[in-house]
Amino acid sequence: MDIDIDDILAELDRDTTAVDQTLTSQGNDTTVVGSDAVGDLVAKQQAAAAQTAAPPSPVQDFNDLLVAWRNERMCPEILAYPHLLMARTLRRVQQQMEHIECVSMGFYEDETRDAASAVANKLPLLCMEADLERLKFVVRSYIRCRLSKVDKFSLYLRQLDTQQPVPLTELLSSKELEYHERHFTILLKLLNSTILKHMPPELQAIDDNEGSVPMVEGPDLASFVFVRVTGPDLGRSAPDTDPTLEINDEGVRFYPVYIQELREEVELTVDGIYVMRYNVVQELVQARKAILI
């Protein structure tokens, strides 16, 4: 199906919001927020598919988590919070910790076993622990990365909130929202009490964008990122399910994108690695058709 996405890209270039173009992904993870024709269509398709899909396996979840982590670290803006994925992951972490505790309590109370076999049982325990540590590290790094972005763009997010009808709850988890709110409050209190209240009235705002230098800093969507094209749903679904995927003459599948400044249309082939400005591939990344590396 040939869809003209020029208008979408034009929209992207015009305003620098990140929220309203959040497209869906397959599965029960993120929610559907698309507001344009394309978004609706794709959303409906995938929502239908979602109802018949099974819950993702732990391995799949782990890979999704890694993808989300990598994306988040490389991306100049905050990506959507994968609510369900995180909930599942955290639950699994807790279960695993209980399990390890049980095993480690259990085996060493049994003293009739000889030393050699008791020690031999330690090795699988060690592997489990090491793996759990790694997972915890990934989650920790992911959340910390997001928090640092929240801190960096806190004024910007507030602006988003007031401008868009769509709440921030899609972008941030409830805890992150709370963090954002509270941190902003105390920071404002600090800045107000030390500096801003001593200022003449026209300079007392903290988000004043009319002076010579704008005070609110948004994410730099034009920064370069490395991107790898995976295909629909991170390469897990068959290529024909995605209407935006085209086939060229040699039978290779690709996504067409349009680079505004060069006025050039580029073909991003599946499994290809490119270096582009983020705004060019933003939609693809958010649609889980490409990942940042």
Partner: peptide, 12 residues
């Protein structure tokens, strides 16, 4: 040595 291994290798 084995005695120590048995008694003191608590994982926690």
């Amino acid at each position: 040595y084995e005695h120590i291994l048995r008694e003191s290798s608590s994982h926690s």
